[in-house]
């Protein structure tokens, strides 16, 4: 298993946002995490990144991540994107992406201090090509449309060559054409051997590309299995009643 979530519980004051949640992410698979709004999906991601205090165990490749601080996770091979775009607007696209390499040390201290550029040109071009953002590398982020910034954020999470990537609603706000491209990109990411844990509202995306799905409601796991199993599960249908079917 690349990631094991065991009895994860997160409380915010009296609210139990995640309740004894357990599931596993298998290596080189796409694992969907879905559930109605407020189910606790983002909180699972935030726990993995130590942005909220939690109980339970989060085990990455047999290592309990409990004592590793947020900024060390990239070096362990985990990266993520945010539900609400996290972009450095006053930087160029290139600078934005290179921040994703911050924790990668070069062998030479002076080179290392003097910037990312020296060693990272090749990785930068590779990832920019994958995400179709090559033409924008020198453009300041504040001038770019949302759809492209989503790709920049993804590039930033990919350039560190993670083994596990957490995507929080990567399709939100994208138009249909962009969503089609996103599907292809996520499949490519999987082909690169990267495991994907993905929260996504768009059922078209999640049912199409997920290998396995975990469904949450009110912080608890209510269903799990392949897309076909999950979509026919009465508990899932019930949880989504009143909402249009989306994660």
């Amino acid at each position: 298993m690349i990631l094991q979530v065991k009895d994860l519980t997160v409380r915010f004051g009296g609210l139990v946002a995640v309740n004894k949640l357990s599931f596993d992410v298998k290596p080189s698979t796409i694992h969907g995490l879905i559930g109605p709004n407020g189910a606790g999906k983002t909180t699972v991601f935030n726990s993995i990144f130590k942005l909220v205090p939690y109980n339970g165990n989060l085990i990455y490749k047999n290592i309990d991540m409990g004592k590793y601080p947020t900024h060390s996770l990239v070096n362990m091979g985990i990266s993520r994107t945010f539900q609400n775009l996290s972009i450095f607007y006053s930087m160029t696209v290139k600078e934005n992406i290179l921040v994703g390499l911050h924790s990668k040390k070069s062998s030479n201290l002076i080179k290392d201090t003097l910037g990312y550029k020296i060693n990272s040109e090749k990785e930068l071009l590779e990832v920019s090509e994958l995400l179709n953002i090559l033409p924008y590398l020198s453009v300041y982020a504040m001038f770019l449309p949302f759809g492209i910034l989503k790709m920049v954020e993804l590039a930033r999470a990919l350039i560190s060559k993670p083994q596990l990537i957490l995507l929080d609603e990567p399709g939100a706000g994208l138009n249909p054409a962009e969503k089609e491209r996103l599907k292809e990109i996520i499949k490519r990411i999987k082909e690169m051997g990267i495991s994907v844990l993905m929260v996504e509202h768009d059922m078209g995306i999640i049912m199409n590309i997920s290998d396995e799905i975990t469904v949450m409601n009110f912080g608890e796991k209510i269903s799990a299995g392949t897309p076909e199993m999950v979509i026919h599960d009465l508990k899932v249908i019930e949880a989504y009643l009143g909402e249009e079917i989306h994660a």
């Binding site: 990144f49 942005l51 900024h71 921040v99 911050h102 924790s103 201090t113 930033r156 560190s160």
Partner: peptide, 26 residues
Amino acid sequence: YRTKIGIGARGIAEDWYGARVLGVPV
């Protein structure tokens, strides 16, 4: 604008947690 520390600092300035998640030792 030219060093890793500086770009990291600019990242922190815009988004402390976002930078942290990316591995910037905030």
